[in-house]
Design a protein around this nucleic acid. Structure first.
Length: 294
DNA sequence: AATTCCGCCAACCGCCCTTCG
DNA sequence: ACGAAGGGCGGTTGGCGGAAT
């Protein structure tokens, strides 16, 4: 919380315009301001944030108004303590998505990205550390030395999977290793939904963009649901060794529905033991069984 | 009772991406 | 094709309030 203040002169030479205007109020919102903002949005709807303050009679920048609405005033915002089941879900989602707070929040009704971010930083990360778990990788702290050059990759390499909407998963030419993944995954992940390529050559196949048109949030939700399957979580917390760990910022996995609708490629990055896969490809099947949900 | 410490969290900052003219 | 505006996101800040000394 900050003391109320006004921006008396143009501040940051490089600041965003709406925040550097002279006469803009900052700091905590008063009940009167809340009411002005809430009434205006109920009347006129969300959007056009930059011009909203003037129209609503507020001496705030548009960003501040949006933040206040999104994180506090919105009727759907749930107040109060994070319940144990919500905490559990946050842990799972963070393990999958990394610090993609908005994505995580999108899967937890009534909670905002800011709230989840705060809760993570003040509670969950410390909790994991106290349990000897690296809150960033979700792996044991002392058993998981992270290379400086690429903290998200194992020595054996990182596999990236691009999720696309395509009716023909086989239209990407796989390397030998990819072929192995593909054979597993095509059976695991909905056949019409996923294929992959090397992280080293993103979007290099030239046929992804238009295929995204068929993709929708439900598909992605189902996929994400499958990734937070109980088994993954339980295995991880029981300290069982997973040949293939789904890690942050795997995130990839994860992209917002907004992005999804615009034709980006999602990359699900699997921190994986390539050798383990080549020796025991079936274990991959078992680890990431995918069920397309209705 | 006074002071210091520290956790919490609302709010801000700066960057990035998308849209639009 | 390009630049500006709008909007969204993750990281960080800093004031409040309770706990500890």
């Amino acid at each position: 919380m900050r003391n109320p203040s006004f921006v008396g002169t143009s501040t940051a030479s490089k600041g965003t315009p709406c925040c550097s205007k002279v006469g803009i109020k900052r700091g905590p919102w008063t009940p009167e301001e809340d009411e002005l903002l809430a009434n205006y949005i109920r009347r006129e709807g969300e959007g056009r944030w930059r011009t909203l303050p003037k129209r609503a009679g507020l001496l705030r920048c548009g960003k501040s108004c949006r933040l206040r609405w999104m994180n506090y005033l919105r009727p759907s915002v749930k107040r109060g303590r994070i319940a144990p089941d919500e905490e559990d879900l946050i842990l799972r989602l963070h393990r999958l998505l990394g610090n993609r707070w908005s994505l995580i929040a999108g899967r937890i009704p009534g909670r905002t990205d800011n709230e989840i971010k705060n809760y993570w930083n003040t509670h969950l990360s410390k909790k994991l550390i106290s349990q000897g778990i690296d809150p960033r990788t979700h792996k044991p702290l002392d058993l998981d030395p992270v290379p400086k050059s690429n903290p998200n990759s194992s020595e054996l390499g990182t596999k990236t999977i691009a999720i696309e909407t395509t009716n023909t998963s086989q239209d990407v030419t796989p390397t030998n290793l990819e072929y192995g993944y593909q054979q597993c995954q095509i059976q695991q992940v909905d056949k019409s939904l996923v294929n992959w390529h090397n992280s080293g050559e993103p979007s290099s196949h030239g046929n992804e963009g238009h295929q995204m048109e068929n993709c929708n949030e439900d598909m992605f939700s189902s996929f994400l649901d499958s990734l937070i399957d109980d088994n993954l979580f339980v295995n991880q917390h029981q300290g069982e060794q997973e040949p293939y760990n789904l890690v942050a910022p795997a995130a990839a996995a994860a992209e917002s529905s907004r992005d999804f609708s615009h034709g980006n490629i999602w990359e699900v990055e699997f921190m994986s033991s390539m050798a383990a896969f080549e020796n025991e490809p079936n274990s991959f099947n078992n680890q990431y069984h995918y069920q397309h949900q209705p």
